[in-house]
Design a binder for these strands. Structure first.
Lengths: 334, 334
DNA sequence: TTGTAAGCGTTATCAG
DNA sequence: CTGATAACGCTTACAA
């Protein structure tokens, strides 16, 4: 019943040209006279010809496939709204190109397996998500395979490392400055795990703003991005007994956890403590009071990552670090 | 610097056998004497040989690739915790097999493009997520490509349709019965969009339980799964002026929206109205009171989907409909 | 049990 | 500008 899948050869026969010509109109129509292109295309449509990817890859040494590498703890990974939005953004951009996206789970148990898969020509390039400082394997892989990192991995000085990231330092700086502009002077911050550059960067942004205003009292605590850890960190902050009237939380989840604690203690937001944070997600929007926050343009980030990689594969020179700008959203927590 | 990627031929030379023998130990080691397998494997390891996927596909007519088809509105799709958990569950299972997962976004604008990509031998099978009744294209595709649907698509009677789903009817029935067991008799339900089988099924489960208890008063409203729509539906329900002492909401988000309205009106949960729902997500856990709900074992669902597809591709006979069981979690909303 | 050889559907080189 | 023809790396009858 199934009509045999048409091949390039059949198209050639139908159009009355050689295989080479058909291949040319498919791959570089400009090198063929318009008349020929038209007739070959007609034949292609009539037959419903679709190039066989495997044959193409084999002959051209290009797989037209891009690997999206995600950490082994996939459930936790996708549970993070940031990544849950980033993955489809990358996918969406790629769907407008000739590339196909494959999801590869970094196997911690046998890193060699992942490594070989990537390096054996099965993939033209890779996108590495997650900023764990331990992802050194990938910066090594990046030396032989076009790779774009979301976020700054360690070894960023390596000449083969390309990164796209949101401007975390700038975001934190902006959020902190907003606190200062609103008269807050006793600033504290709860940042993310010290193994993640995004956390480190946000901390640095906070430092810069606070330092510039001469108000750094060293009130820093670390959390792991979760509400629970944010609450714990807030308790530790309070336990220090120092005055606090402004808090920059490195994520909306952290902020939510912290606010929980403040509520228990009868500390009012924003009256007693004003809060700014990062992430315009469900947490930021549904907190009460709603959080003044920095929006990360995840869609644009994903598109930028994908676009950079495609260009890198094409041999273009691209920036080693592209920072995508963020926006402050004013709500009720300040 | 880069050592040339070792080929099967090089392995053969090194092991002192023919290419066919190497191919055999790679693909069907059982058909080769153990001694030979061992020596060939040694050669493979020494060389770090990795089979070239493209060549394999071309020669064997198997791509070892499975497509995961997701709806075009990728952002909304992944924002749904259910899918955000399901995708990695499928990916994780597949990573233990020889298959590779590729993400394909169903292009609504040019469905033919997706269709051709899938049907041109670039893929050995497909997983279709999302239960829109409009996904008829895929049941057609499923006739020529091994396909497993998550959720029941229309045309489920088609002999080529294989589905894995949560037992939605059973879940709703169980949740509703729980309400009845706790003395509630004036039951209402807010279900999902009528275009989605999961919503239809949950409604049916509610009906069955209510009907069996002879308490169906026809108090039904529809929502689109969101909090907002749940709130709206609750208002409509209340506007009818009929007594309600038990509500089955088809999703925790709907339940959350509904509770918001009840709170505004001073109606107490569970004292005045008891609520049960489906989804043990953030919404169910953080509602106050916390929601008594039906947990969907998404991890198992994903694994079942992937496993079914792999076996279908292998030519095994599999169930046309596998229902994965759910569990009731008792909390404070009843 | 193992090897030989003929493809698989493209791309790419090289004449014409 | 176009057409042979040789790869590409592997699988798979078919022979031995």
């Amino acid at each position: 019943m199934q009509a045999p899948t048409p091949t390039l050869e059949m198209v050639a026969a139908r159009a009355g040209v050689s295989k080479s010509t058909v291949s040319r109109v498919v791959n570089s129509p400009d090198s063929v006279p318009a008349r020929v292109v038209a007739s070959v295309r007609a034949a292609i449509d009539e037959l419903g010809y679709v190039p066989n990817l495997a044959a193409r890859s084999l002959a051209s040494h290009r797989s037209r496939t891009i690997a999206l590498i995600i950490p082994e703890d996939t459930a936790a990974f996708f549970a993070d709204p940031y990544y849950a939005a980033l993955v489809p953004a990358v996918a969406k951009f790629l769907s407008t190109t000739e590339y196909t996206l494959t999801l590869v789970i970094a196997s911690e148990a046998e890193p060699g397996k992942t490594r070989r898969h990537l390096l054996s020509g099965n993939v033209d390039g890779a996108v590495v998500l997650s900023h764990h400082v331990s992802d050194l394997v990938y910066v090594e892989i990046a030396r032989s395979l076009p790779t774009v990192f979301s976020g700054r991995p360690p070894g960023s000085d390596d000449p083969h490392t390309y990164m796209v990231d949101i401007d975390n330092v700038g975001a934190a700086e902006q959020a902190t400055r907003y606190l200062l502009q609103h008269g807050r002077r006793s600033l504290a911050t709860i940042t993310g795990p010290q193994t993640m550059t995004s956390a480190l960067d946000r901390f640095e942004g906070w430092m810069r703003a606070a330092f510039a205003a001469g108000v750094n009292n060293g009130l820093v605590e670390y959390a792991d991005w979760s509400e629970q850890s944010g609450a714990d960190a807030m308790r530790r902050l309070l336990a220090r007994g120092e005055p606090i009237d402004g808090l920059f939380a490195a994520s909306a989840q952290i902020a939510t956890g912290a606010m929980e604690v403040l509520r228990e203690r009868g500390i009012r937001v924003p009256t007693d403590i004003a809060i700014t944070t990062v992430d315009n997600d469900h947490f930021a929007q549904n907190a009460s009071p709603a959080l003044t926050t920095i929006e990360q343009p995840v869609g644009m980030l994903g598109a930028t990552i994908a676009d950079s990689l495609v260009r890198l594969i094409a041999g273009e020179e691209i920036e080693h670090l592209s920072l995508v700008p963020t926006t402050l959203i004013e709500r009720e927590s300040v």
